[in-house]
């Protein structure tokens, strides 16, 4: 179930294998593999079906957009995939393995990371600490070895710090490194949120309305960051988003949801002209 990325050690990071993976994706010399698949997901809140019999798949190496009006069930679906909601019915598969009942913290170890609509960062910590917290699932050593600060713990902490700095470089967060996250503007917080997810060296990142509440400049910065990460590290992205302009610009494929159901799926140009999508968005 774990795959190769669970052998997450300092040496493998040093050879920078993730960059090689990015090159591989750019050349398109790989076979598309389905990373995440949901089957007939049903989520109900007090009798209201937030997600109604939804089956989707996310292929490796794509940027998938999930769009839909408010209350369409996009975030609920994302919460099911990241393990925060347990579906009333249906299954979630990751690389063909059923993970429906797996707790969220273990899904992260498999390679599923996510960001939040309202940056759910640790507001009392600085940027570096926030990013390093994302690496906690891979920590080495028990409580006693942390209390004694053994050489193994020291080495791991240095590795985690190096990894955090690497992501800080990637997302251009240098100047905010020691800033308490709660004091940063929303655009930077979104980037820190993405940085925390990327530090986990995920195979797929689910981003919940990353553009919400951002200015045009902040949106451009974030889109640039996503594309750069996608191109250089070959990470699969799933954007749950309202901003149609952003989604149609950068996504390979779009899934449209309305009233908890998938109403359309396909290439951006196909989807935006789909009669059901037009109806859902314009109410016409």
């Amino acid at each position: 179930m774990g795959g190769t990325r669970l052998s997450y050690d300092i040496e493998s990071w040093k050879v920078d294998r993730v960059w090689d993976k990015g090159d591989l994706y750019r050349k398109k010399e790989y076979e598309r593999e389905t990373l995440v698949r949901t089957e007939h997901i049903l989520v109900e809140f007090g009798g209201i079906r937030a997600v109604d019999d939804v089956s989707i798949k996310v292929d490796r190496g794509e940027i998938l957009g999930i769009i839909g009006p408010n209350g369409a069930g996009k975030t609920s679906l994302l919460n099911v995939i990241s393990g925060f909601y347990k579906p009333k019915h249906g299954k979630v598969y990751y690389k063909g393995v059923d993970i429906t009942r797996l707790p969220p913290h273990l899904r992260v170890k498999l390679g599923i990371s996510r960001t939040f609509q309202h940056s759910e960062l640790f507001m009392g910590m600085n940027v570096i600490e926030n990013i390093m917290t994302g690496l906690h699932p891979w920590r080495k050593g028990n409580t006693l070895s942390y209390a004694l600060w053994t050489p193994g713990v020291m080495k791991w902490e240095e590795w985690a710090r190096e990894k955090a700095e690497h992501v800080i470089d990637l997302l251009d967060l240098h100047e905010y490194r020691y800033h308490i996250v709660g004091s940063l503007p929303p655009g930077v917080q979104k980037r820190v949120d993405l940085a925390r997810a990327l530090a986990q060296d995920p195979e797929v990142v689910f981003m919940d309305e990353p553009m919400a509440g951002l200015t045009r400049e902040e949106k451009e910065d974030l889109v640039r960051a996503i594309i750069e990460v996608y191109e250089t590290r070959g990470i699969t992205f799933v954007l749950v988003e309202h901003d149609l302009e952003v989604v149609t610009d950068i996504c390979d494929r779009i899934i449209v949801m309305d009233f908890g159901k998938v109403i359309a799926e396909g290439r951006p140009d196909e989807v935006v002209n789909h009669p059901l999508v037009v109806k859902a968005y314009l109410g016409g």
Binding site: S82, F84, P103, P104, H105, L106, V108, K109, S113, R114, F116, E120, L121, F122, M123, G124, M125, T133, G134, H136, P137, R196, A197, Q200
Partner: peptide, 10 residues
């Protein structure tokens, strides 16, 4: 700071 986010980050 945020136990929900803590769970989600692993």
């Amino acid at each position: 700071d945020n136990d929900v986010a803590a769970e989600i980050v692993g």
